[in-house]
Write a protein that binds this DNA or RNA. Structure first.
Length: 280
DNA sequence: ACGATATGCTCCCTTACGTCA
DNA sequence: CGTGACGTAAGGGAGCATATC
């Protein structure tokens, strides 16, 4: 499966009204000054301004750190998974029923054993883990199986956790991009509404001007005649000298519409005509 | 060559949990 | 201390691509 980075939520298909360029937002981490390891809540806090104080993670408490014994067993499990991965395919336990066989089912079973009562465990990633994941996401927003396993090993996480993190990260990026796109569209709509209002006003002023000066149209200089081709009904304002009958061009004008005598059409000033004159 | 099936991936929506005000 | 809002890890379904038979 060929995956293009731009299709992964970074651009949503909405186009800029001006340049037909995809609206893009750089959502990557940009070396924050306050903390070396930014969290997503910080990156996105421009909209919700909560979470101003330090989190336990910031205070140095890693809630995600497992006891050493469990840690070792997890590492053994990861090594087993890595071996399986290198034999072929990624160990990615998915929830699809058809996929719940074999390796995945075994992994889920092992997870439940860890959880004990079967309740869902929710682990917070440490700042360091988040930062490394963020760095990797910056390089590429998708995960190859080998990179996933390598990252998992580096971060002392299960490959499934790395996979989920990337998945959620892509979702956040897309959500943020959607918000930006909506804002751009909203502004565009406002501008067009304002432009429409302005034009309506202009039309009203022009109409009022016409009512006040009834001779206005008479003083305008409309073309006295137009010419129309009887066959194709095209209208032309060619000069009188060019209005004489023309013979249909022979073979040279192959594909061209056969010429017919052009007939002058007397024109009277109309409202449309006046408008056209005014807008010239 | 073609269809059925299995597998693995991503996307999307939802749920559950942790944290904070 | 209880509660609601919010952020986020994780569960689960659907769709798609690929490999195998």
């Amino acid at each position: 499966m060929v995956v293009v980075e731009e299709d992964l939520g970074l651009t949503l298909g909405l186009r800029s009204p001006t340049k037909h360029a995809p609206l893009r937002l750089d959502l990557m981490v940009s070396s924050p000054s306050s903390s070396p390891f930014p969290r997503w809540s910080d990156l996105l806090s421009s909209t919700s301004g909560r979470r101003s104080s330090e989190t336990p993670l910031r205070r140095g408490i890693d809630v995600n750190r497992a006891p050493e014994a469990e840690r070792e067993s997890e590492e053994e499990e990861e090594e087993e998974e890595e071996e399986e991965d290198e034999e072929g395919g990624a160990a990615s336990p998915n929830s699809t029923l058809s996929s719940l066989s074999g390796k995945r089912e075994a992994e889920r079973a092992s997870d439940e054993e860890e959880g004990g009562d079967g309740s869902r465990k929710k682990l917070r990633l440490s700042m360091n883990q988040s930062a490394i994941l963020e760095e990797n996401f910056k390089e590429h927003s998708t995960l190859e199986p080998k990179r996933k396993v390598a990252l998992a090993k580096q971060l002392n996480l299960r490959p499934r956790q790395v996979e989920v993190w990337f998945q959620n990260r892509r979702a956040r990026t897309k959500l943020k991009q959607t918000e930006v796109d909506c804002e751009v569209l909203r502004r565009c709509c406002e501008e067009l509404t304002e432009e429409n209002r302005r034009l309506q006003k202009e039309v009203q002023e022009l109409r009022a001007l016409k009512l006040l000066s009834p001779l206005f149209c008479a003083h305008a200089t409309p073309p006295t005649t137009l010419t129309m081709c009887p066959s194709c009904e095209r209208v032309s304002n060619a000069k009188a000298s060019d209005r004489r009958s023309r013979r249909p061009a022979p073979a040279a004008a192959a594909g061209a519409r056969p010429q017919a005598p052009w007939v002058p059409i007397p024109l009277r000033p109309t409202r449309l005509h006046a408008q056209l004159q005014l807008y010239r």
